[in-house]
Design a protein around this nucleic acid. Structure first.
Length: 401
RNA sequence: GCUGGAAUCGUGUAGUGGCAAUCACAGGAGACUGUAAAUCUCCCGCCUUUCGGCUUCGUAGGUUCGAGUCCUACUUCCAGCA
């Protein structure tokens, strides 16, 4: 019996919890889990070259089907030899389906994605006609944020794009809802996400059958907002299908995140990897890993870096602050990243004030290293049974201020 | 020296007789979770927690019910001419 080029092996478990360590095997290499996957939306990790991405310990990169379809086009990436070759990343790659853009360009357009349900005020100011995405049962109509042209994404088309891009792991095309949406809408959207998941799976199987030397894994994506019955329903539904792994999505209410993930992961099969989409804050990472999440991705480390913030053991700090003008110390003592080994806060503060792009690069290196090392340390703490001690010590220091 | 122009928030500006302070930058604080994001929000003359109060358009006069705006002188700067 031959194994698929993509498979997952659990290597250890935390007694009494869902947390586990393991290895995801992909055609482009292995990923030791839990792992933080860095985001490279447009086939680049913003402000970093792949050598830096490798040096911070990243094991995989996640790009986006919507962005790469618009520019430069998945056909071109296919002609270039696939995403990893195109962007010179010698490692595994994931792609998101464009499902996130259903919300970020649709009902969530021009709004901050709420991590709480207290969003009535935001809904009240939502302006009709000011969106770039419209959902129908068949798919999503997008108005390009680049040139205003219209494009229609179906689950099949998203698979074709992702297969063309050539990532190791594709995501099923899903509809991300807002916590502000009604219960009735959540049910409707979840039914649609299920229909789309079936269509995504059928299309991916067809595409894989047509390319004997290339197998692209497909993750089914779980929605259901913060409703226990919907989350359990979708977990059961997804578990019955032949996905290679699963993504847990949705704008998750922060306080309920661990609980929601537990509802899903108690039902999902143990032998397939579970990815948590778009999460990186330390408390969320601990909660998710405790409840059995294997991989994460998030834009936060690079985005906040370009906006002048650095992760530290005592919380996220805005390094543009006046008090760092003459701080001739690293971002924090003891950090093992390239930036902290060679540059001072004062220097990065200067670069940020001078609007030099190097500040974004140096802070991106630092922030990616910080989150990756955190997840690496959590992985080791699961192996040696010190997960809870490590969590309590870390989070107490991180949120002390 | 002559002629013309200019002077408004830290800086550059808007305001051409009717409640001065527009816009930008600089400065201060904050936000950012499957990237419409090297972006966005708020503050930014003084006092006040708020409500609100007070001050101020180079200087000194003048005209006018009322002047940043018109007039006179002065100061400083800019341009041209000598």
């Amino acid at each position: 019996m031959t194994k698929k080029p993509f498979y997952f092996e659990v290597s250890s478990k935390l007694p009494g919890a869902l947390a586990r360590t393991g290895v995801i095997h992909t055609p482009h290499g292995d990923i030791e889990t839990p792992a933080f996957i860095v985001v490279g939306t447009k086939a680049d990790v913003k402000a970093m070259v792949p050598e830096m991405v490798h040096d911070v310990g990243a094991q995989a990169v996640l790009a986006n089907a919507y962005h790469l379809y618009l520019q430069p086009g998945h056909d071109l990436i296919a002609r270039a030899g696939g995403l990893s070759k195109f962007m010179h990343w010698n490692g595994p790659t994931f792609t998101d389906s464009g499902g996130f853009q259903v919300l970020s360009l649709g009902s969530g357009f021009k709004k901050v994605l709420a991590m709480t349900t207290d969003v009535d005020a935001e809904l009240a100011i939502a302006r009709k006609g000011d969106r770039h995405a419209w959902v129908t049962d068949d798919g999503v109509k997008f108005k390009s944020h680049l040139d205003g042209s219209f494009h229609f994404f179906t689950p099949e088309f998203s698979m074709q794009i992702q297969h063309g891009i050539g990532s190791d792991v594709a995501m099923a095309f899903d509809e991300l809802t807002s916590l502000a949406d009604s219960r009735a809408y959540q049910e409707k959207a979840l039914a649609r996400t299920h229909a789309w998941a079936d269509r995504s799976l059928a299309e991916m199987q067809r595409l894989n059958a047509a390319t004997p030397d290339y197998y692209q894994a497909l993750f089914g994506v779980l929605q259901g907002a913060n409703y226990e019955d919907l989350r359990k329903e979708t977990a059961t539904w997804m578990a019955e299908r032949d996905f290679d792994g699963f993504g847990i999505g949705g704008a998750l209410e922060k306080d309920e995140m661990g609980t929601i993930i537990r509802w899903c992961n108690e039902i999902l099969p143990e032998n397939k990897p579970r990815h948590l989409l778009g999460i990186a804050e330390p408390d969320d990472i601990f909660a998710a890993i405790e409840q059995g999440i294997d991989t994460f991705d998030c834009v936060s480390p690079t985005r906040v870096a370009r906006n002048g913030s650095a992760y530290t053991p005592s919380g996220r700090v805005n390094i543009r602050g006046k008090q760092y003008i003459d701080a001739f110390t690293p971002v924090f003592e003891g950090c093992d990243c390239y930036t902290c080994q060679h540059y001072t806060l004062a220097y990065i503060n200067h670069l940020a004030r001078a609007k030099e792009t190097l500040s974004g690069t140096l802070l991106s290196i630092h922030n990616e290293r910080f989150i990756i090392k955190l997840v690496d340390d959590i992985r080791e703490s699961i192996k040696d049974g010190t997960f809870y001690e490590f969590r309590d010590r870390f989070l107490t220091a991180y949120y002390r201020r």
